[in-house]
Design a protein around this nucleic acid. Structure first.
Length: 218
DNA sequence: GGCCAGGTGTAAA
DNA sequence: TTTACACATGGC
């Protein structure tokens, strides 16, 4: 059995971004997509728990809106997202992002651009992981997101070193997997889940084809 | 009190 | 091209 199915059987669907638990039930709205983009920036090197409160604040002050984000005072914005850490930098990033999207018209227009990934990477504050998170979870393009968890897990499986180059590991997934954004979404979430647990507790892991190369059970 | 969390930009070697 | 460092709060 493919390791993806093993993980899926063991942990069940994770229902990650955009809206927990609702992902399969409806098409994403523009507001959903914007929230994903904002979350992707706020969660840079920060636990999701810290980000949730910041997102709540943005909702509370009706700031889940490109024009409002683009025009709000940067210090006010920083204060509202303080709990997500690096708050001065992230306030600046959110404003630059919003202004940049507005130059294209709407999020929808921006997502239709030819070289979307390069466009995203050219925005100050958006690096490979944030760009790919936006591509996969907001624009629903089949791009595999590599993060600290993914690197850790794959290095424990013996596929790569823990400091593997982002695009090298991404290339590995793109080569091995069918290019399907729902699969990439779920797969990445499952990896994070397994990284947070002790692999020994998962019966399926005992027959995992990668087990002999995996020191995760020790 | 120390370490880490769904990274990125900048500067210097 | 690689490495070091700043950015910053909250949870355990």
């Amino acid at each position: 059995m493919h390791i993806f199915n093993k993980l899926l059987n063991a942990f069940g669907p994770q229902n990650w971004w955009p809206i927990k638990g609702e992902y399969r039930q409806r098409k994403l709205s523009e507001a959903d997509r914007l929230e994903v983009c904002i979350g992707a920036i706020l969660t840079q090197n920060t636990s999701w728990k810290n980000v949730e409160q910041a997102l709540d604040n943005l909702h509370k002050y009706d700031l889940m809106d490109l024009k409002k984000l683009a025009s709000i005072d940067e210090k006010k914005l920083a204060n509202l997202i303080r709990c997500s850490g690096y708050y001065r930098q992230k306030a600046k990033k959110l404003k630059i992002f919003a202004q940049c999207i507005l130059e294209s018209g709407s999020l929808k227009d921006f997502f239709e651009k030819k070289n979307l990934r390069d466009e995203l990477l050219s925005v100050w504050g958006i690096g490979p992981e944030t760009a790919d998170s936006i591509m996969l979870y907001a624009a629903e393009k089949p791009i595999f997101v590599i993060d600290a968890y993914t690197k850790r897990i794959m290095s424990r499986f013996g596929v790569c070193k823990s400091d593997v180059d982002y695009h090298v590991l991404q290339g590995y997934f793109h080569k091995k997997l069918e290019k399907n954004h729902k699969l990439f979404n779920e797969y990445h979430a499952l990896f994070v889940e397994i990284a947070k647990r002790n692999c020994k507790k998962v019966p399926e892991c005992q027959t995992c084809p990668l087990k002999k190369d995996c020191d995760f059970a020790t």
